[in-house]
Computed example of a mutant assay.
Amino acid sequence: MTYRLHRPESLHALVREMVTRAGWTEAQAQETAHHLVLANLSGHDSHGVGMIPLYFTSLADGNLKPDAAPVTKLDGAPFLIIDGQVALGQPTAREAVERAAKMAQDGGVAIVNLLDAHHIGRIGHYAEIAAEAGLISFFWVNVAGRPPIVAPYAAKEARFGTNPHAIGIPVPDGEPIILDFATSRMAHGKARVALNKGVQVPPGYILDGEGKPTTDPAHVFQHAIPDLPLGALLPFGDHKGAGLSLIAELLSAGLMGAARIDEKPQKSWIINSLFGVLIDPSRLEPDAALRRSRTESYLAFVRAAKPQDPADPVLAPGDKERAIRAERGRAGIPLDDETWSQIKAAAARYGIDAEQF
């Protein structure tokens, strides 16, 4: 597997140009580019610029439209419900979370439900937005519009999406705690990265179409292996991850009648619904200095635990991403040859030479 290093600002400019040429506004393009490049900078290549070819496939198929716009169904504190209308996900979700953040700052708490947006990207991004606003946040997301890809505990076939959870806790004048994870043992996008790189995944992550363990990521992509049924990712923590995935499906989409993974047509799109709770921590402890000292003293206690491997220190949620951002900000973002080839092909549809960026 070979790869190239790309400057973050070059990838940002390329994605922004691609999205505007495809018909979206400058503001929508800027937010989409910012979100995707930041995912790569954070080490989450599964949710980075490699997603753009999939978005453009949805666009070409008529399933994603630049003129789609979200519609507010309820704006009555503490509740905010928005129908995403399968609009471009990153700007749609950011606007929903920012509106909920203002509501929580005003009233102490907000409950937001964004229904049926196109793929909204890395969920931890929204916990970071809430933390920047000084708010605690909890997010649950489902994945619809595609076949189920995660098996319930003890099952041989899929019934869930990867259905991520994210939790953010701000630290006054410090770096926030950001916990972000898929309820599958690996995100589907990470399997895509492995497929593009031509590498196997670790044992215990994937079942093939017959329900047998495999390390070949091709088994969780339709048509990647001709004449074989789609396989499944396994949930993390056995019944624990499977249970959290079920809860995410119901909270984000099922209760409000949004696209559920077992109901909607399997098209070339990814639909996400998001359920979030945002809380102003100053309502719990008004003294910001006390909140900081209490949090940081405990984080110091956790990080001071003796590591099993001295080269792999104990970290708090969010530490690794911040370290990778610094490293990739200096050295560049690595993209494997297959992912870069797919991006170049998508850009060429709109007369853009990606090699010029």
Rank of each mutant, 00 (worst) to 15 (best):
S10Y: 03
L14D: 13
M18R: 03
T20W: 05
R21S: 05
Q28H: 15
E31W: 11
H35L: 09
H35C: 11
N40G: 07
G43P: 04
V49C: 06
L64I: 08
P66G: 11
P66Y: 06
A69L: 09
A77H: 08
I81A: 02
D83S: 10
A93R: 09
G107Q: 10
A110T: 11
I111M: 14
I111D: 00
D116F: 00
I129E: 12
A130G: 03
A133Q: 13
G134K: 09
A144C: 13
V150N: 00
A154Q: 06
A155Y: 06
A155R: 02
K156Y: 00
N163Q: 08
F181D: 06
A182V: 02
T183Y: 03
R192D: 04
K197L: 03
P202K: 11
P202L: 04
T214R: 01
D216L: 10
H219E: 10
H219A: 15
V220Q: 02
I225N: 12
D227H: 14
A248V: 05
E249S: 08
G254W: 10
M256A: 13
M256V: 12
W269E: 14
I270Y: 11
S273R: 12
F275I: 09
I279F: 11
R283M: 11
D287S: 03
L290M: 13
L299I: 04
P307G: 11
A311P: 00
P317F: 09
R322C: 03
I324M: 01
G332W: 12
L335D: 01
A346G: 02
A347V: 05
A348F: 08
A354S: 02
Q356L: 12
